[in-house]
Simulated assay, not measured.
Amino acid sequence: MTKTLFITGASSGIGAATARAAAKAAWNVSLLARSKDKLDEIAEEIGDRALAIECDVTDRAAVEAAVGTTVETFGALDAVFANAGTGTSKAGVEQGDPDEWHTMIHLNIMAVLYTAHAALPELRKTKGHFIVTGSKAGRDHLKGSVYGATKWFVHGFAGNLAEEMREWNGRCTVISPGMVDTPFFEEPKPGKLQPEDIADAVVFALGQRETSAIREIHLMPND
Rank of each mutant, 00 (worst) to 15 (best):
E72V: 06
A43Y: 04
L142D: 01
V93R: 04
N108M: 05
F153N: 01
I53L: 12
A10D: 03
G148L: 11
I42D: 01
R209K: 15
P98K: 09
L51E: 06
L123S: 03
A62Q: 10
L219W: 08
V132N: 06
D78K: 05
G148D: 01
N169G: 11
V29F: 01
A33K: 09
Y147N: 02
F153M: 04
R124T: 09
V80I: 10
T69G: 11
C55P: 05
V202P: 13
M110A: 07
I217D: 11
H155V: 08
F130V: 02
V180G: 07
T173H: 13
K127A: 14
D37S: 14
G156N: 08
F81M: 05
E100H: 11
W27C: 03
F157G: 02
D223T: 15
L51A: 06
G191D: 15
P177I: 01
A21N: 09
A158S: 14
E187T: 12
A79C: 02
F153I: 10
A213L: 11
P177E: 01
F153P: 00
L206Y: 04
D99W: 03
S89N: 15
G15E: 01
L77R: 00
I53N: 00
K127L: 10
M165A: 07
R124E: 13
L113T: 03
G170I: 07
F6C: 05
K38Y: 03
L161D: 11
R171G: 07
G134L: 09
I217K: 14
G15C: 02
I14M: 13
L32S: 03
L193V: 06
V203C: 06
A76G: 10
S30L: 07
T133I: 04
R34M: 04
A25P: 01
A205K: 07
G144L: 08
D78R: 12
E44S: 15
N222E: 09
V80N: 02
T70R: 00
E45C: 13
F185M: 10
A61W: 03
G15H: 11
T182K: 13
N169E: 14
G68I: 10
N160C: 12
S89H: 13
G47D: 00
S176G: 00
L113M: 13
K143N: 10
A111H: 08
D37N: 00
G191P: 13
I131A: 13
A84G: 06
I109N: 12
Y147Q: 05
M104C: 04
T2E: 14
L219N: 07
M1H: 13
A62E: 04
G87V: 04
L123A: 05
H218M: 12
F6P: 01
H141A: 15
K143P: 10
A91D: 11
E45S: 15
D140R: 08
V132T: 12
H106Y: 05
G87Y: 03
A33T: 10
V71T: 15
L5P: 01
G87M: 05
L32A: 03
A119W: 04
G134V: 01
Q95I: 14
N169H: 13
M165T: 09
